[in-house]
Amino acid sequence: MAKSIVATGHFTGCFGCHMSLLDIDERILELVELVEFDKSPINDKKEFDRPVDIGIIEGGVSNEENVEVLRAFRANCRILVAIGACALTGGVPAMRNTVPLRECLEEAFVTGPTVVDGMIPNDPELPILLERVHPCRDLVKIDYEIPGCPPSADALWEALSALLEGREPVLSYEQLKYD
């Protein structure tokens, strides 16, 4: 049987969901028998160059680069799975949403108590921030959502094995958590 092609990506968040994915421990040996990784920070592959079966994304959408990469994931992945609080709700980064963006930036880079000679970063290399941090579904269609901060390895394993077997993931009470 041909291996499924899997890509993973991360937007605004802490990378904890990818860490949790690695927490599937020895089951990773089972996984490599079943899948081949395309674009992913795990293999450091930067671009898509073939159709992907399952895209797994973590992190919220907070800047123009996130927008571009998320759209690329949607365009290249047959099934797109958002994992973790940030991808599903904006998560901790979205706590800035109740404060105007300029105020956030000024506090962080200009007026904060530990800042000396600060300025709001404006290097053209930096992606421009969105006014608010958004869940991925605010921008593209998401097929499956696995909550958690991060989702437990068991929850991620259930999601992955279900999708590889062609069934709907079913999370147990212990696996469906927001924290």
Partner: peptide, 14 residues
Amino acid sequence: YRLGMTAPHYPALN
């Protein structure tokens, strides 16, 4: 949790 919500699907009002 009990009702199986994965996340709120309406736009956040913040």
